[in-house]
Design a protein around this nucleic acid. Sequence first.
DNA 1: TTCTCTGCAAACGCTTTGCATTTCA
DNA 2: TGAAATGCAAAGCGTTTGCAGAGAA
Lengths: 162, 162
Amino acid sequence: MKQPCALHPHPHSHAHRLIQPPLNELTEQLRRRDRKITAPRQAILEVLRRHQHPLTNREIHAALGESECDLATVYRNLNTLEQMGMVRRFDFGDGTARFELLAEGDDGHHHHLVCTRCSTVVEVDGCFSTEVEARLARTHGFTQITHRLEFFGLCPKCAAGT
Amino acid sequence: MKQPCALHPHPHSHAHRLIQPPLNELTEQLRRRDRKITAPRQAILEVLRRHQHPLTNREIHAALGESECDLATVYRNLNTLEQMGMVRRFDFGDGTARFELLAEGDDGHHHHLVCTRCSTVVEVDGCFSTEVEARLARTHGFTQITHRLEFFGLCPKCAAGT
DNA sequence: TTCTCTGCAAACGCTTTGCATTTCA
DNA sequence: TGAAATGCAAAGCGTTTGCAGAGAA
């Protein structure tokens, strides 16, 4: 019962987090699924491509700059992109959704360590073995088990500044 | 890396979830901290005592019956009770806070398995070893690390009814 | 009496939606 | 041309807050 968890001991960034898919690959995905390639949509994908951290709708909207579009359009697009599996939604428990771009075929399952003071986000690689979920399934008869897990703490900078 | 996680293999209810603290013990805690013992406050604690599952503010408000009070009062009281450590807040990611009564000295740290269809909640006993958090602390220099973890799935009844 | 708490109503932040118009294919 | 996407404004929902009056100590 005291064995180390399947969560990797030395978290680091996934390759897919560093090498974002090129824009034309993204628009290709849209085309394939009969989604229109609009200016706002491209601009939003471009913003997501430029950031490796989860962004809120508002942050994405603010980062659009010249290519500004309505905030409602940002919301609508991120919902669409999530449905399409091009983006993953994260919930840090502050009542605001955050999104990260996904590479094709990646389910983007990973977790974060979030500073409770400055909101700095560190990506935590690795995850539970599916064994834990399988065990829950056996014990309670639940199926299709998933989980949400995020870590919170005080980052070194904020700890120093106190 | 494939060892079983420190999450207990056979979840079951904690004793403190079955034997709720008596009402007079709760009011005693209030008295000790110079909080007034009002009718709404007692009624809210009584509702929490009667339920072993996490309740939303609205659910608590609805369960008050005769002793009804303003919904804002429910919100205010649960925030107060949380600050006092008499209640623990849970976040199932649906944008609505849920609360459970705590026994004195209990930090209430545990997790849930929630049915995505009918919202049935099963309490999952046990948790990560602190080892995982200690490892994150070492790797990233974060301090005061905590985590939020909830499981989701389809309960047997809902799976059958499909 | 004093300080807290409550009720009421308004406001807030995130998110969604209805509708007319524009844009892509 | 026809379906989908956008802009704009309004609304929805959980939650908080300002303020005057009520209630506990």
